[in-house]
Design a protein around this nucleic acid. Structure first.
Lengths: 112, 112
DNA sequence: CAGAATCCGAGACGATACTG
DNA sequence: CAGTATCGTCTCGGATTCTG
């Protein structure tokens, strides 16, 4: 995964478009990380995701479109009937695993 | 920093209150990570933060209150005149450095 | 100096209804 | 099956004004 030597602190000017913002923008939305988490277990169809996540169609479709646009998820139609669509993580999406682990790590400590 | 062996994938049920959500909730808001980034360089007064971040008073005050509530930032009045308030990261706040580095890492790769 | 109060607009969520 | 359309609600952000 390239070089890990660059630190968040080593950049001169904090702008709203810095890499940290890019990542948070990709993960934006209450259900986004849960969708990614599902797909880390392998490709899923739309209905499988809908069944696993108890989320409305609108929100699920919105988040999937967002993830596709960010290059995290790839969408593909499955031949045959009934029509199905499969969603899978791209290599870039797979790379989110480390990010989610870091978020999990910090959030699992007590706040007291 | 405790054990890093737990993975985001190893948990049974994804809930809106899982640790990942805790972290994203703490970092919620466009300016939050930039405030944390400033404080990673050491304690800052309110006006120092305001000068460095070109953000409105309302938003800055909102984000600081949020970070204090999450246990990330500690607020302390400075004696003397004019009245000043100093903000500094708690140990829990310092621990965000690794999280921000992970977010930076992922976001700095091209999407193409 | 360090904010609080108020008002407005944008975006995300949620439920419901409808369609290729 | 896999969405889109619509509507109401809520939170965040930005600007302005005011105060201990």
């Amino acid at each position: 995964m390239a070089n890990q030597t660059v630190s968040y602190l080593e950049v001169d000017r904090p702008t709203p478009e810095c890499p940290v913002e890019v990542t948070l923008h990709a993960l934006r939305g209450r259900w986004t990380t849960l969708v990614v988490r599902e797909l880390l277990g392998g490709a899923r169809t739309y209905s499988e995701l809908a069944g696993a996540l108890a989320v409305s169609d609108k929100v699920l479709a919105d988040r999937l479109a967002q993830l596709v646009e960010c290059g995290v998820v790839e969408r593909s139609r499955v031949a045959g009937w009934p029509p199905r669509v499969s969603y899978a993580l791209t290599p870039r999406g797979q790379a989110l695993r480390g990010v989610l682990d870091a978020l999990w790590e910090w959030g699992s400590h007590d706040c007291s």
